[in-house]
Structure formats: C-alpha cells, structure tokens
C-alpha cells in the first residue's frame, strides 16, 4: 500500500488514491467477462426477441457461443476465487498481523477487525442511507458525508459477490447436467436454470442501469468516470462523494487549512 501516495498533484489539482493496480485489473477482468457472459447468455433466455439471433450469430451461433460462455464463466469463477483469497490475504497481513504485533490476538478482536473492514456494511451506512433519502426528499439540505466506501458502492460490490456464488455453480451444474444427477435430483436442474437466468437478469439490470448510471450516465460523471483506469479520484469528486475520507486524508497529510467545505 506504500507504493501509492494518498494524494498526487497534476496540473495544480489534487487527486486522491482509491484503487491499486491489482484492484483495477480485477475490475477490468470482471467487467469484460460479465459483459461477454451477458451477451452470450441473454440471446438464449430471450430467444424470441429480434436482437437475439443476430447477437448470437455474432458470437458464433449455437456451436461456438456456448463455449465462449462457459470459458468466460470459468475465468469469472477463477477471478472470484482469486478475489476471495486476495481480501483474506490482506485481512491477515494488515489486521491480524497488527493484532499479533500488539499481542491482542483474540477471537473477539479478529471478529471486530473483520466487521471494521471498509467493505463490510456498518451502522454508518444505515444512517447515511437514511440521510441520503432525507436529502433527496427535501427534508435536509446536506448530503451525507460518506466515508471511503459509501453504501451505494457496497451495493455495487456485494451484487457480484453474492451473484457469482449462485450463478457460477448453477451454470456449472447445467453444463454437467448428466453427471450432476448423481448427486442431486433432476428437479434441481430446473431450480438451477431459474437461479442462473434470474440472477443473471438481476445482475445485468443492476450493472447496466444502476452501476452504469453511477459511473457513466449520471450528469456528474458523463461520459465516464476515470477512476477505474487511473485509480485516483479528483478533489471535487472526493468532496462530493467521500467527504469524511477527504477530511481525514487532508488532516493526515497536514493540509487541514486547505480543506474545502462541501457547500462551497
């Protein structure tokens, strides 16, 4: 983590560190595989739509597209496993390691550390959510001051993190439909089918409408938020979206006097 300065300056503007290279790589693999999976999967679910056949033909038709879908799915599953290993590694390296150094390694402390991880939803997210709707519904004129990861971003994160463990195994079961009946009744194949396609629909709607709104269509981001490429967020975006973290980092870097208020 030392390799990434918290704040960099370009053309007299401050940029705040957000995603490391490994994280950005994971995101790129995630969205290329998910888009490919959606494009090779939905023509099967919506086979009678006019766009379905041309799209499927583009991916090689019934002989090739299923294989693209399966191999891409395996890559996504591998990414899921890598990511799980990745955060467990970071958790042990940064947090459990610190507990060991401080000689405070107890089960209670480990659980406490686990729930204080930045991705885990917490009480503040709940109040932020309420504050956000208060602000949106004119009950308050102040945007909630989000910390490093807002509740919206946790939604974005847990959508795939909950979706892949359902989509992946269900997809593999439908792939090896003959062999799987050694372990599960045939009816389970029907359940897998519903789970695979409905979960995929949920994920697709979520990603292409909700997530893409947040990072592409929104008037504040249009045409595209660049943080997924650069790993850094502009000062303006930090003030708008992660004010708590902004204040904290500015203080840490000794820039307290230069903190800009949110309602400038």
């Amino acid at each position: 983590m030392q390799r990434y300065p918290k704040i960099v300056r370009r053309n007299g503007k401050r940029y705040f560190f957000r995603f490391s290279l490994v994280q950005r790589m994971q995101h790129i693999i995630l969205f290329t595989t998910v888009i490919t999976l959606a494009l090779t999967g939905f023509p099967l679910r919506y086979y009678n739509q006019p766009w379905a056949k041309p799209l499927y033909e583009f991916f090689g038709g019934i002989d090739i597209a299923p294989w693209i879908h399966r191999i891409t799915g395996l890559i996504l599953l591998a990414l899921f496993l890598f990511h799980t290993g990745y955060w467990i590694y970071l958790f042990f390296k940064n947090r459990v390691g610190r507990l060991i150094r401080e000689k405070a390694l107890t089960v209670g402390n480990v659980i406490k550390e686990f729930f204080s991880m930045e991705m885990i939803p917490n009480k503040k997210d709940f109040y932020d959510l309420i504050d956000m709707f208060k602000y949106l519904l004119f009950f308050s004129s102040r945007r909630p001051h989000y910390d490093r990861i807002s509740w919206k971003e946790k939604f974005d994160y847990f959508a795939p993190y909950w979706g892949i463990p359902i989509l992946g195994p269900a997809g593999v079961a439908l792939w090896f439909r003959d062999e799987i009946t050694q372990y599960v009744p045939g009816i389970a194949l029907n359940a897998f089918y519903i789970m695979h396609t409905d979960e995929a629909l949920l994920a697709a709607i979520f990603l292409f409408f909700v997530h893409w709104y947040n990072v592409h269509y929104s008037p504040e981001k249009f045409p595209m938020a660049t943080v997924f490429l650069t790993g850094y967020l502009s000062e303006e975006e930090m003030i708008h979206e992660h004010y708590d973290e902004y204040e904290r980092i500015m203080k840490e870097e000794g820039l307290e006097l230069e903190i800009i208020s949110q309602n400038h």
Partner: peptide, 13 residues
C-alpha cells in the same frame, strides 16, 4: 445425448 445421466435425471417430470 445425455449418456451419463442417472435415473434421477428423468424422474422429475
């Protein structure tokens, strides 16, 4: 076709 299918494959309906 489903050469590896077990009994259960077809019994569900």
């Amino acid at each position: 076709c489903h050469t590896e299918a077990k009994e259960e494959f077809a019994t569900s309906g």
